[in-house]
Write a protein that binds this DNA or RNA. Sequence first.
DNA 1: CGTCTATTTGAATGTACTCAAAAGCGGTGG
DNA 2: CCACCGCTTTTGAGTACATTCAAATAGACG
Lengths: 202, 202
Amino acid sequence: MKIFQGIHPAIVESLRNTALLTDDEISETMSYFERRCIKKKKFILRAGEVSREKIYINKGCFRRYLIDDHDKEVIINFGFEEWWVGDLESFQNHRPSIYYIQAMEDSEVFSINEENLHLLFKAIPKFYDFDNRIIEKSHFAMLKRLAMMQSSSPEEKYLSLLNKYPQILQRIPLYYIASYLGMEPESLSRLRKRLCNKEKKS
Amino acid sequence: MKIFQGIHPAIVESLRNTALLTDDEISETMSYFERRCIKKKKFILRAGEVSREKIYINKGCFRRYLIDDHDKEVIINFGFEEWWVGDLESFQNHRPSIYYIQAMEDSEVFSINEENLHLLFKAIPKFYDFDNRIIEKSHFAMLKRLAMMQSSSPEEKYLSLLNKYPQILQRIPLYYIASYLGMEPESLSRLRKRLCNKEKKS
DNA sequence: CGTCTATTTGAATGTACTCAAAAGCGGTGG
DNA sequence: CCACCGCTTTTGAGTACATTCAAATAGACG
């Protein structure tokens, strides 16, 4: 098994086991991508711009948010290693995006523009299927998150987030987490205090 | 332009203009599907079952819901004409579903099982691309809905729903709409009263 | 006409929200 | 080493509104 220097093991793993690519095909696939570094706080997309590339995170993390009707930032999701980020809708339709996407840490990504993406799909059809399956998986995850948002109490939302991303507290400030959970930072602070007290009692 | 009897015009339209199929290809595509009638209140899927077919709605409407940790029904979404329904995740992974899908009216659907779907993809590759684009679109819509759920007041959620599906009040009972919006039926009732009063004053 | 389903109303409670302020924390420069 | 500044989190007080439980009303359908 070939070792791929500087590529996150989870990416190689999923190209191997989910996309079912051979090592040669993985090398070829990666050659269509460009490696880029994004400094903390830098944007890879702003509302109004058209997304010109698909981006996979090799290292670091990002937040996607939009500005709602009350001029408030609403965080839609975070992106960590081995996930893609970007506004696929803008990318596909060549329409201005409504989202901002910003690096939360110094990050490194693999990006690919539309032209190369089509060449890659032609060269490695299995990658086309793989890419479609990624969207599908995002969709499934989104459905479950929506169910959560609708039915769970703020406590449950917070705990389930911690459960899913145990490292999130180390990487993301609480007031961004609050926005992601659909609450105010003050409420999250009080909620955490409540949970703390419960722990002590039990 | 051929006329397709008994097929919802919106379905034909999207096969023609989005999938870019010729009339002959549309006929061929449809021949892979089975037409089925579903009586009001009947289930096309229950939690625990594995979804064995993909289903497109020709007439009528459905609701998808799950039973949450507090034994409460949570409505995830409604399906109307020309949309697909079903649990794609269960269908793809052959795993038991967590969702219930129930007809809200006497309905008619086009269903296709896995075997025929693969045959169809082989016969009409453009349908494979089309199908993937449908998932993508669902995903985009879901992202926007999530943003709504996170940032909007109950009033805004309700009004935006009416705006998106003007016919919904005629077809779906209010207490299901309440569940979809993540609130109690009583709250929706009071909310509607408030809106009514505002209208009168203005 | 009666029964089941759906919607509204009432009263009491809890909790998230707003606004305002304080405290904690990290880094920079004098 | 300390003072200062920006960023993040916590605390406080008051208000608004969704929730719960209970009951009344309204509609639909046989």
